[in-house]
Computed example of a mutant assay.
Amino acid sequence: MKKIAIYGKGGIGKSTTTANLSAAFSEMGLKVCQVGCDPKNDSTRLLLGHICRKTVLDVVRDNDAITSEDIVHTGYNQISCIEAGGPEPGVGCAGRGIIVALEKVRELNVLSDMDAVLYDVLGDVVCGGFAVPIREGYATDIYIISSGELMSLYAANNIAKGIKRFALRGVVRLGGIIGNSRNTLNEKKLLQEFAARLNTYLITFIPRDSIVNEAENKRQTVIQYAADSDQAKVYRKLANMVLHNAKMTVPTPMDFEELEALAEKYGSKN
């Protein structure tokens, strides 16, 4: 089983990328489950065609005796979709909610027959709850999504620190940086060097394309909405690379001054 976690700064495109990866894997004939680890419970929206109406925490709050059917929802191309959910706004810790939800998923053994499980995780490894997929062995192959924007790189570097910490005492490894373009200056070159500094590589560079927004407005992945588009081909190629990736590493994060200097190096037309 491939156990994959996708991390990155909030708003960088984690859910969109993860959902398109899930769709591409399902096209390969794999049995796929996507697990949303964000209290907004919108990770699987493009696969289900709507916001998940029952998260794991919703079900747990309502009923102690639950079954896998209560928390697993079927989406596009028979992809299994699970949303961890979170506490009511202003009440409780969202990270703690992730812990409770994933423990329930493990207890019910709903992932045992999957070929690929993808965890879409809120990009905050400062809180222990969001580190659970890599800390507790739910995922072993970690990918970080980043653009060439400084704060996106800063978040990615912090995530790499967390991955390094857990990699040194387990099997978790960094599989690469997924570049999600924001059309910043020298963006691809910057991401290539950033990845190299982290002891990994830029596994793909996803171009900015309006068809992504079109698909999202239709509540679909690009794979479903525009199956023959160039953007769909990018996601399929990424899925194939992730499935067969053997370049798994322990990252070497930078200090902030080094990161700033790197961004400055590529942030000029000269």
Rank of each mutant, 00 (worst) to 15 (best):
V250S: 06
L102Q: 01
A226G: 05
S152L: 12
G129S: 02
L46F: 13
L47I: 13
A131H: 01
L46H: 11
N213K: 10
P87Y: 12
L111R: 03
V242F: 13
H244Q: 12
G36E: 05
G267L: 06
G36W: 04
M248Q: 13
Q220T: 06
T44E: 04
R197P: 03
I144P: 01
R173Y: 07
G85P: 13
S210D: 12
Y266P: 02
F25S: 06
S152V: 11
K269W: 10
L102M: 14
I66R: 04
V32Y: 05
S26C: 11
E193K: 11
M254E: 05
V125G: 00
Q78N: 15
F25P: 04
S146A: 15
T140E: 10
L153W: 09
K265D: 05
A155I: 07
T184G: 07
Y225D: 15
N180R: 14
A131T: 01
F166W: 00
I177K: 01
C37Y: 02
G95R: 00
D228C: 06
K161Q: 13
D115L: 10
T44D: 10
L185E: 09
I66E: 01
A195L: 02
K14L: 05
G10Q: 10
N109T: 11
A116V: 15
V110D: 07
Y201F: 13
K164M: 14
G267W: 02
H73T: 09
S210R: 08
I12M: 10
A24V: 11
V91L: 11
G36N: 08
D230T: 14
T200W: 07
I203R: 08
D228E: 13
L198G: 06
I4C: 02
K233A: 13
G170Y: 00
V91Y: 09
L202M: 09
K237Q: 14
S26K: 06
G148M: 12
L174A: 07
E103W: 00
T74E: 15
G13E: 03
D58H: 13
H244S: 12
I142V: 14
N213S: 14
K14R: 10
S146R: 05
Y225Q: 08
K2F: 04
I223F: 05
E193T: 07
